[in-house]
Nucleic acid binder design. Structure first.
Lengths: 131, 131
DNA sequence: CCAACAATCAATCATTTGATTGACTGATTG
DNA sequence: CAATCAGTCAATCAAATGATTGATTGTTGG
């Protein structure tokens, strides 16, 4: 998707003279639904516990038991989070015997997560004092 | 950041024979803080109204009044959302006269948003019936 | 078919979140 | 310096979220 910067550069004008008050339709509105859907994806990723799950699944497919073993949390909790991630279609499942294996839904999701973690780790966090 | 897939491919083995129960430390834990910070960023983007703001700011710097004009919402509401985005350092501000201009904090954020919207628009949403 | 294990579901409850309103600060203009 | 405009702050309140517990489904192995 192309966002397109500087569609109408309005450099130094004083915007109090109501130029932009009557300007432009209230919104492209076209993107309304896209924003909703995209926000839902981001919201699903916007929780440390869930993101940790996603980060693990970015490495490879894992079953719930293994995920539970790696994170220090009980199985129902993990399962619940996975359920949410599946509802937003960030992950998909496959059953094999007693186990249900989870993996990231597609590469796009994977790169979203990688990019996010990249930014999150680069950001020197002045707000959060060193633990 | 490199995540590294298939670090130990465990194809067809039955994971009930407790191979992975004793396996691996509970978590890399190194990434704990990174996950927290990253999740906070995603959470901030994980709201349709805020994402719309970010999408607008991805085009160019805008002041609160202009943003308010483009979205159909009152100024305090917009301001509140911007405040949150600023607290997470997704946007930064600069004052010019009466106006305060907002812009995306850096290019990394911009690409995160673009990628997200790209994925959000590509996804055919089987869950959400056509409005 | 029964016992044991993997995972999900359903319901409850505390916490977090976000919208809203009115008061407040900061800058400009006459 | 008073009036006005831009924007933020603070407090309240309803709605959404997430953790937790116990019951339930699905699968395998004896």
């Amino acid at each position: 998707m192309e966002i397109g910067r500087n569609e109408d550069a309005s450099e130094d004008r004083d915007c109090s003279d109501l130029e932009h008050l009557e300007a432009k339709s209230p919104m492209p509105l076209l993107d309304q639904e896209i924003c909703k859907r995209t926000a839902a994806i981001f919201r699903a990723m916007g929780d440390a516990s869930r993101l940790q799950l996603l980060a693990l699944l970015a490495k490879r497919e894992m079953c719930v038991t293994e995920l539970t073993g790696r994170l220090s949390d009980n199985l129902p909790a993990i399962s619940q989070r996975l359920k949410l991630l599946r509802a937003e279609r960030l992950v998909s499942t496959r059953r094999q015997g007693k186990h249900i294996y989870y993996s990231l839904a597609d590469n796009h999701i994977a790169s979203l997560i990688e990019n996010g973690l990249a930014h999150g780790s680069e950001t020197d966090c002045t707000l959060c004092p060193p633990t």
